[in-house]
Simulated scan of single mutants.
Amino acid sequence: MKDINIEQFIATSDFKLKNVSTKIALGADEDKLEDELKKLSKKLGEWQDVLYAHSKYAVLICLQGMDTAGKDSLIREVFNQFNTRGVVVHSFKVPTNLELKHDFLWRHYIALPARGKFGIFNRTHYENVLVTRVHPEYVLGENLPNVNSLEDIDENFWDSRFEQIRNFEDHLSKNGTIIFKFFLNISKEEQRQRLLRRLNRSDKNWKFSPGDLKERQLWDDYMDCYEEAIQRTSTPNAPWYVIPSDNKDAARYIVAKVLWEELSKYTDVQEPELEAKILENLEDYKKQLQHPDA
């Protein structure tokens, strides 16, 4: 199986979507990729147990991608070795009335993982510079001061929103949250094939909406918005990883490998030592518990 350097997937400020492929050859078949993913998932699950005991960091994983990019199945397969107490998944839909009464980051802030836990955002705060940029009329529903018409949603507005997102992530990072952002990069043709498969499967076609086809017509607009969002918000403390995702098995493996290699660098994440008094009496406690009536 081909060894990969995870740094090749990190987006820089000059990132261009046209220069990255949606496909990657790893020199492994589906069974091999699944086996390697299981090994990484097990390691990540064990590391999360230690993280929970250490309780000084949280891990936030942000997943973005066009419809059918494979976010749901990636979550299921990559994190299936985790203790359920240690990972919380949030899937952000259209903002509710309550959420619209707050700033656009509020609903994401209250869903952040506590220290010792993994939080997964299935769609993220980036919807606010992606969907809303393709459909700026949605911003009017936020009832913002000084935004009374589409003319008010200009480049200065988006510059400010990008700055707010960078500040948000910088604040999280400085307070112990390890941030990963993954863009699952699929081709338009692959999306067409996946939508067709979705329609042809009775257990999957409930996911289909005619709106999917309308959004598909705006593919180029979305790609432009993704490119700029990634360019402007990929930072050392919150990098974007652009994952070739036409092959779901390969994408899952790469995401797991990125997580494992980066999290392994946090060598200070260790199980806490027993208090001296408990350690001193450890053998006595064992003897007490050896009696059936203990």
Rank of each mutant, 00 (worst) to 15 (best):
R85N: 14
G86E: 08
G86I: 03
G86C: 05
V87L: 11
V88H: 15
V88Q: 12
S91R: 09
S91I: 03
K93P: 00
P95W: 02
N97S: 13
L98H: 12
L100V: 06
H102P: 00
H102C: 01
F104Y: 14
L112H: 06
L112D: 02
P113Y: 06
R115H: 15
R115I: 08
F118V: 13
I120G: 05
N122P: 00
T124Y: 05
T124A: 03
H125C: 03
H125S: 07
Y126L: 06
L130P: 01
V131M: 11
V134L: 06
E137K: 10
Y138E: 04
E142K: 14
N143H: 12
N143L: 07
N146G: 03
V147S: 06
S149E: 08
L150D: 05
E151R: 14
E151D: 15
I153E: 00
D154T: 06
D154M: 04
D154C: 03
Q164K: 15
R166D: 12
N167V: 07
E169Q: 10
D170N: 15
L172F: 08
L172S: 08
S173R: 00
S173V: 00
S173N: 00
S173I: 00
G176W: 11
I179H: 08
F180V: 05
L184E: 08
L184G: 06
N185S: 13
I186T: 01
S187Y: 13
S187H: 12
Q191K: 14
R192V: 05
R197T: 12
S202C: 00
R216S: 01
L218A: 10
D220W: 15
D221M: 12
D221H: 15
C225W: 06
C225F: 10
